[in-house]
Amino acid sequence: MPHRLYIVATSGLAKETAQLADAICRVTPLWDEIAYISQDRKEIGRKLPFGVVVGTDELLIAAAESIDVAIGIGAPTARKRVAQALTQYSHLRFPNLIHPKALVDPDWVRLGIGNAVAAGCVMTCDIEIGDFNLFNLNVTVAHDARIGSYNVFNPSCNVSGNVQIDSEVLAGTGSQVLEKLQIASRCMLGAGAVLTRSCDVEGTVLTGVPARPRT
């Protein structure tokens, strides 16, 4: 039986996750095939870039052997919901997908499980990262950053040194977090926003330069 990586979801982000896995396989052939998992049985057999929709969550849950799974969802809360639903099954494994053209030194960056790190990302040193985060194209994370789980960093987001980010945070394209700041869970930093003050109120939407809570 081919060694597959299963991508949960069939959205654009799912296709990009498959593309990330394909780039990894071109350097290190970890999987023979990439396949998609849909919530809609009607999608089974649908051809997508890099693979085909082969089933629903039931296929994953019923598997008799250990299998590798990646979550192709770009909304923090949805990533968390799916991850928590699937991690209860011990035969499902959630590898970190790190693009060959990302700079992430495992001696200096501690990662949990299920993280996706796209091309052009740079992470420096003494960084701790939880589970199921998405670092999209060209994201940078500086020294001593502490990042929780289920966060989504959109392209070209910059996280400075000694920053602490809790969980389920969405950082918009081109946003910046200045040094020594904290962001509470479920906050959203708008595209191009520059955070100059910590935000300790969960669920706050921050926009502008400097970033301020949206009213």
Rank of each mutant, 00 (worst) to 15 (best):
M1G: 13
P2D: 08
H3T: 14
H3P: 05
H3S: 08
L5F: 03
I7E: 02
A9W: 08
A9E: 15
K15P: 01
E16L: 02
A21V: 05
A21F: 00
A23L: 09
R26W: 01
W31V: 13
E33D: 12
E33F: 03
I34G: 07
I34Y: 00
I37H: 11
S38I: 00
S38A: 07
S38V: 03
K42A: 15
E43W: 03
L48H: 12
F50T: 13
G51Q: 06
V52P: 04
V53E: 07
E58P: 06
S66D: 07
A70S: 11
I71V: 14
R81F: 06
R81S: 15
T87S: 08
L97R: 03
H99P: 09
P100L: 00
K101G: 12
L103I: 06
W108A: 00
W108C: 01
G114P: 13
V117A: 10
A119Y: 04
V122R: 10
M123F: 12
D126E: 09
G130S: 09
N133T: 13
L134T: 12
N136M: 11
L137C: 05
N138F: 11
A142K: 11
R146V: 04
G148T: 10
V152N: 01
V152T: 15
F153H: 07
N154K: 00
N158I: 11
V163M: 06
I165W: 04
D166H: 08
S167Q: 06
E168D: 08
V169C: 03
L170H: 05
L170V: 02
G172C: 01
T173W: 03
A184H: 03
S185N: 05
G190S: 10
A191F: 00
G192I: 02
C199A: 12
C199I: 14
G203R: 06
G203N: 09
G208P: 04
T215I: 07
